[in-house]
Design a protein around this nucleic acid. Structure first.
Length: 523
RNA sequence: GGCGCUAUCGUCUAGGGGUCUAGGACGCUGGCCUCUCACGCCGGAAACAGGGGUUCGAAUCCCCUUGGCGCUACCA
């Protein structure tokens, strides 16, 4: 049987692709590489936006790669949530685990053989070695280094001969593979926005490339994948600057060209610390549930750390791409300002939507038959008139409920105790990988028992935190309807209200609580 | 502690040697509009972290100090 025209076509496409990727000015390719641990983070969207805008403004491609090399924390639920969140925002990628592409697989856990092969080359070339030192040895070394005032960091102190190492490895002894770096001299990194950044090599440790579970670390996987996937520009968070020398070294050892580096400033909490869920909403799903328009959220992310050449404040993705200039990124760490986001979202609602548009938005958000079918069984037994139904359900459609902080503290419990309990609940809820009223119930039951609190006492403040009143529709079903992110956000909000009233958990007290929590609940 | 990044109103920013007695936006605030509120419009308070240089001239360039932040894991 001969070949079909379509086969010919495919071959020529492939040929074209290879050709474009090997010419002297390769097509721009950027990526965002989130780790699927926990909620889809607003920071991921921020990075995705700038990578996408940069690539598209150059006529290039933008890809999504899942960095699930942390076996303990990565989950498929979280990965799916990232896909959904990016698509919701309109940050569509040309290639990725759920859309395919010519450089797959796009999930690092499916590329293990590649990393092993590349890492073996490094060992063979004498750039890396098998290391058998134990956590105890490393701890002791670190302690000794810290005490003597030296830079902490492992630099091959317990390295053994390669003959012995191969023997022990062949015998199946667990070990890691580490990268050798020069012990003196200077490593110069070039950042598009910051210019030359110099690091003394003596400052850099022998980074683990391959963990004892056979998974690569970020550093190895990231370099190998960026190279193999033809990434030309790495736009990532400022937090990565200090590991750039390791990456530089890796590219050199492999003999590969390093992509251009562009480090963006980190999003900040109002107190200027790195954005964290403790102090700010960070889950994209929270913003969705709270009723922000995806266009507005994206617009806001583009407004933060960046300014349009014409100084416009309201723009969509295509406008941003059309005039995008990476040099207009500002380097001071921007505070994520919820008030300005709300203002911008308001503008999008009143200037870019007709009443009919808004109606459609409302329907696809929460105001639809599906949601009401979940709510009605809760309201029906309690309502006496149709007109009771909407007021009773109103808080399900709201953002943060309004209430007096004193309501959070029931008779028989004091403020600090309540804050502690909510803190524990929040930690437990954050650990959950899927969400349902049933799971919330089980979790709260378990907490009540562990903390020796009657369930009704434990639940009293939670009713207030979630619904804004001590009396409301059934709690667990409510939590299921508003979702995990909104539930957690409202609990965090309650904690903040308690803090304002003088019951703040912080510093040593919080640390101690967290230790005790981890001891009795596990991590 | 070490290394690194960073520094304009409370916040997001414009500014890339003279046009800056520093512009815009959010927030705050006074007023107008108006059946209330919101929107909208007009106005106000509010910043170049400090000190040295370079230059005829520095918010803009360099250095130091200080502050903020990040990294310092078999997490990314």
């Amino acid at each position: 049987m001969g070949f079909r025209i379509s086969d010919l076509f495919r071959i020529s496409i492939l040929g074209f692709r290879i050709l474009t990727m090997t010419t002297s000015t390769p097509q721009v390719r950027t990526r965002v590489a989130p780790s699927p641990t926990g909620d889809p983070h607003i920071g991921t969207a921020y990075m995705a936006l700038f990578n996408l805008a940069f690539a598209k403004s150059q006529g290039g491609q933008f890809i999504l790669r899942v960095e699930d090399t942390d076996q303990a924390r990565s989950t498929r639920e979280s990965e799916q949530a990232i896909f959904d969140a990016l698509h919701w925002l309109g940050l569509n990628y040309d290639e990725g685990p759920d859309v395919g592409g010519p450089c797959g697989p796009y999930r690092q856990s499916e590329r293990l053989a590649i990393y092993k092969e590349e890492c073996d080359k490094l060992i063979a070339a004498g750039h890396a070695y098998r290391d058998f030192s134990t956590p105890e040895q490393l701890d002791a070394l670190r302690k000794q280094q810290t005490e003597s005032g030296a830079n902490p960091g492992y630099r091959g102190e317990f390295r053994i001969s390669s003959e012995e190492a191969e023997k022990r490895a062949a015998a199946g002894e667990p070990h890691v593979i580490r990268l050798i770096v020069p012990s003196e001299g200077e490593c110069v990194i070039n950042d598009r926005l910051r210019g030359e950044i110099k690091f003394p090599w003596a400052q850099i440790d022998h980074q683990v490339l391959m963990k004892s579970d056979g998974f690569p670390t970020y550093h190895l996987a990231n370099v190998v994948d960026d190279h193999l996937m033809g990434i030309t520009h790495v736009i990532r968070g400022e937090e990565w600057i200090s590991s750039a020398p390791k990456h530089r070294r890796l590219y050199d050892c492999f003999g590969w060209q390093m992509p251009e580096l562009i480090h963006l400033p980190l999003l900040r909490n109002p107190d200027k610390s790195k954005l964290s869920k403790r102090k700010n909403p960070t889950s994209i799903n929270y913003f969705k549930q709270a009723g922000y328009l995806p266009e507005a959220l994206l617009n806001y992310l583009g407004l933060i750390a960046y300014s349009m050449p014409d100084a416009s404040e309201m723009f969509d993705l295509s406008q941003m791409i059309a005039s995008f200039d990476i040099g207009r990124v500002s380097l001071g760490g921007p505070v994520f300002d919820m008030a300005k986001l709300a203002w911008l979202n308001g503008r999008w609602m009143r200037e870019k939507q007709s009443a009919d548009d808004l109606l459609e938005r409302l329907k696809s958000w929460m105001l639809n038959d599906d949601t009401w079918r979940r709510i009605l069984p809760l309201v029906q037994p309690r309502a006496e008139k149709l007109s009771d139904i909407v007021p009773m359900s109103a808080y399900l459609f709201a953002d943060m409920p309004q209430y007096d902080a004193a309501l959070l503290i029931p008779k028989g419990l004091d403020g600090e105790r309540v804050a502690t309990l909510i803190r524990i609940i929040l930690w437990e809820f954050e650990k959950m990988r899927s969400w349902s009223g049933e799971q919330a119930k089980n979790s709260l039951n378990a907490i009540a028992e562990k903390e020796s609190v009657k369930l009704r006492d434990l639940l009293a403040p939670i009713f207030v935190a979630i619904s804004g009143a001590p009396v409301a529709l059934p709690l667990f079903e409510t939590m299921e309807i508003i979702g995990a992110d909104m539930t957690r956000r409202r609990l965090a909000h309650a904690l903040a209200k308690l803090a304002e009233t003088g019951f703040e958990l912080k510093g040593k007290k919080l640390k101690k609580l967290e230790e005790e929590y981890q001891k009795s609940y596990g991590r």
